[in-house]
């Protein structure tokens, strides 16, 4: 038990917040920078994961299981989202032979 309490008191919660903000910002930069739709999906995964880590950290620090279950449900939804997203991507690639988002701007009109 002592060995479990130890890490939570040596790492301040603020460190987790800074780390997750940095990871989230990297995800945002990836979405803004990239033209490849696949890399944009990866950046979305990064952002989801930074939110997950922060939820788990708050949950562990407050000894509340609900936060970790939310992380579990976010993982479930992310898996479904990725399956659908990649299927969409492949079907778009079949029709237009590219996943460059600058070519995929037909939704605007």
């Amino acid at each position: 038990m002592e060995t479990i309490i130890q890490p939570l008191q040596t790492i301040p919660l603020m460190y987790y917040i800074i780390f997750c903000s940095a990871l989230f910002s990297i995800g945002v930069i990836g979405i803004l920078v990239k033209r490849n739709a696949l890399t944009i999906f990866m950046s979305i995964e990064l952002m989801l994961n930074s939110a997950n880590i922060l939820l788990a950290a708050f949950s562990a620090y407050r000894n509340d299981s609900s936060g970790q279950l939310f992380v579990f449900f976010i993982m479930v939804v992310a898996a479904a989202e990725i399956a659908i997203g990649l299927a969409l991507l492949i079907s778009i690639y079949r029709s237009s032979h590219s996943i460059d988002i600058h070519i995929l701007n037909r939704l605007k009109w």
Binding site: L8, Q9, I17, S21, F24, S25, A60, Y61, N63, Q68
Partner: peptide, 26 residues
């Protein structure tokens, strides 16, 4: 965005009452 996130969290005071029977929740 990173600067704004960190700055906004820094101004709030995080009150964490660490439980004695910590982190059995995971």
């Amino acid at each position: 965005l990173f600067v704004v996130l960190v700055a906004s969290v820094k101004t709030t005071d995080l009150v964490i009452n660490i439980n004695p029977n910590l982190s059995q929740s995971g």
